[in-house]
Every structure is written in structure tokens, then in C-alpha cells.
């Protein structure tokens, strides 16, 4: 694995971690009890995300890593659909596909 590939993998991992962090914050908002635990878990995930993103910046230009962060829209959409059973309309799926296509172009030419 080349350093660039590792950087891309880390940047994508950061967006997955952020997705889970967002879901946990939403769980905190929805919970009747134990809000603090969900919120704390969410903040922990954001701290780990910052660590992983920092690591990815070691191997990637910021002009590549930052746009890849937009994949968090994709992970949040997928996780909120899968874990929170939220409805996602067609317009959002179009947005998600465009972000996936754009991120792929950015990553392929990194």
C-alpha cells in the first residue's frame, strides 16, 4: 500500500467515525435517559476522528483530504438510515451519489 492509498483510507475512516459520532449525538437527542453517555460517546468519536484525520494529512495534501471529508454526508445518510431508521428522500440520494462521484475523482487523482 502506497502512502497516498494509506492517507485516502485514513481520510475515509475518519468520515465513518464522524458518521458514528453524529449518530450517537442524535441518539443523545432522542434518548429519554442516558443522554450524557451517548453525548460523551459521540464526543469521544469526534476526538478519534481528529486523530485519524491528522494522520491522513501526513500522507495527503489538504486539497485532497478536506474534500474527502464530504463523504461524512454519505456515512451520516447511510448510518441514519440503517441505525436510526430515518427516511431519506430521492433528492438526498442524488446529493449522496454526486458527493461519492466527486470524492472518487478527487481520490483517484491524488
Amino acid at each position: 500500500m502506497t502512502p497516498t492509498h494509506l492517507g485516502i483510507l485514513l481520510a475515509i475512516t475518519a468520515t465513518v467515525i464522524e458518521g458514528f459520532g453524529q449518530v450517537f449525538l442524535k441518539k443523545a437527542a432522542l434518548a429519554r435517559s442516558g443522554k450524557g453517555s451517548w453525548r460523551g460517546l459521540g464526543l469521544c468519536f469526534f476526538a478519534v476522528e481528529a486523530l485519524v484525520y491528522t494522520w491522513s494529512l501526513r500522507y495527503l495534501d489538504v486539497s485532497t483530504a478536506f474534500p474527502l471529508g464530504s463523504l461524512s454526508f454519505v456515512t451520516v445518510t447511510l448510518l441514519s438510515r440503517g441505525l436510526l431508521r430515518e427516511s431519506v428522500d430521492r433528492t438526498r440520494w442524488v446529493g449522496v451519489l454526486l458527493i461519492l462521484a466527486g470524492s472518487s475523482l478527487v481520490a483517484m487523482h491524488a
Binding site: 464530504s70 427516511s87 446529493g95 454526486l98 466527486g102
Partner: peptide, 14 residues
């Protein structure tokens, strides 16, 4: 493409 995608996400319902 990402900017356009974000715009679509912003336009979506929830």
C-alpha cells in the same frame, strides 16, 4: 461535483 452534491443534500427534506 461535491459542491453540487452538498447543495442537493441541503435541498432534501430532512
Amino acid at each position: 461535483l461535491i459542491l453540487t452534491g452538498v447543495w442537493f443534500v441541503g435541498k432534501s427534506g430532512r
